[in-house]
Computed example of a mutant assay.
Amino acid sequence: MVDALLDRGARVRALVRDPQSGRAQALAARGVELAAIRADDPASLAAALTAVEAFSFMTPEANSLDEVEAEIRIGTALVDAAVAARVPHVVFHSVIGADRERGVPHHDSKHWIEEHLRKSGLRATMVRPAPFMEVMAPSVEHGEIVLRLPMPEDAALKMISVRDIGRVAAALLLDTAEAPGGAVELVADELTGPQIAAAFGAHAGLPARYEALPLSVLPNELDRMMFRQFAEAAEHPSDLTVVRSIEPATLDLVEWIRATGWTAPTTVAGS
């Protein structure tokens, strides 16, 4: 999102825990103002948000129930700080499906943060990204593109690129666009596993196949619950025009493969 804001000439202030870290210094080198914060210090959070015209935030992705509770605490603290600083507009990076509780703890946490933000009285916009195109990682086996995901073969996975999440969020933050009803699900494409594999295969000029994996291959129950939700979401097709009404240059998967210059892995599995 920083890229999108800087491209639009916006002044950017980043809230960071360690201003001397490599990532923070890289931002500073690009002209981003750094504000040191502590998540457990409300005063530092409110001070960091003083005099900003808008505030966009996301919470750390949780991988355990303890981390889910920590995520909710951080999100709540950031909303409260925005209230204290009287921020005119807040954009929260949530997750697809967070309009209600769905029984996936590390997605429901974002729903609860959304609810806290709604009750805060602040002007708020929720952006709810689908899974990232960047996580698609097909391999090459015996001269064939192979994609494996823990998704049924006939279930269409909703997707969007990280670049386009940033562009849409920046447009909303800078008020060059609006989200209908104050929330938008960020879906740029939805394709089944075989269709995703075929898109990579066509670009590489190789045959392609898809293998649906069992949920048991996932490392924890949170991830298994998440992929069950992705499969259930496939039963409800998205309106792909919504995101493009905000960012017309949003990429579908074929366009993303081409735009990123994706190439098939050079190490051939199984050879």
Rank of each mutant, 00 (worst) to 15 (best):
L122S: 07
K158W: 09
S216Q: 14
W112H: 14
V146F: 01
L186V: 00
A212Q: 10
V242L: 12
S109D: 14
S161M: 04
P131H: 08
E115R: 07
P152F: 00
A188M: 03
L186S: 02
L117N: 06
G166K: 13
A130W: 06
L218E: 03
A183N: 06
V217N: 04
S161D: 03
A177Q: 04
R148Q: 15
Q195M: 09
E190M: 07
A188Y: 01
K158P: 12
D189L: 11
E185Y: 01
A202S: 13
A197E: 00
L206P: 03
R163C: 05
P214D: 13
T192E: 01
E211F: 04
P219I: 08
L173E: 15
A170R: 06
Q229F: 15
V135W: 08
R224L: 09
S139T: 12
V184E: 10
V146G: 07
H107N: 07
R148C: 06
A171E: 14
I196P: 13
R244T: 06
V135Q: 15
H106P: 11
V127M: 12
R224A: 07
M159S: 08
V187G: 11
Y210Q: 12
V162K: 14
R118P: 07
G143S: 09
S139L: 10
A199C: 10
D164I: 02
E235N: 15
L117C: 02
E221P: 06
A231R: 08
K119Q: 14
L213A: 11
P194A: 00
M226S: 15
M126L: 13
L186F: 00
F227Q: 07
L213G: 03
R244N: 06
T125R: 10
T241H: 13
R128N: 11
V135S: 15
G121D: 10
P105R: 00
A137N: 14
P131D: 09
A204Q: 11
M136T: 02
R167V: 00
L149R: 09
V242F: 03
L222T: 05
P138A: 10
E190S: 14
R128I: 00
V140K: 14
A137C: 11
V242D: 07
P219L: 08
L172E: 08
S120D: 13
A156Y: 04
G205C: 08
M226N: 11
H107P: 04
A130S: 15
A188W: 02
V162N: 12
G121I: 03
L173C: 03
E221L: 11
V135L: 15
F200Q: 09
V243Y: 04
A170T: 06
D189V: 08
D154C: 02
F200H: 08
E190W: 05
E185R: 04
P237C: 03
P129C: 02
S120M: 05
G193W: 01
L186D: 05
G166F: 07
R167H: 12
G193K: 12
L174C: 02
V146E: 14
G181E: 05
R118D: 13
L186N: 03
E141H: 13
H203V: 01
I145T: 06
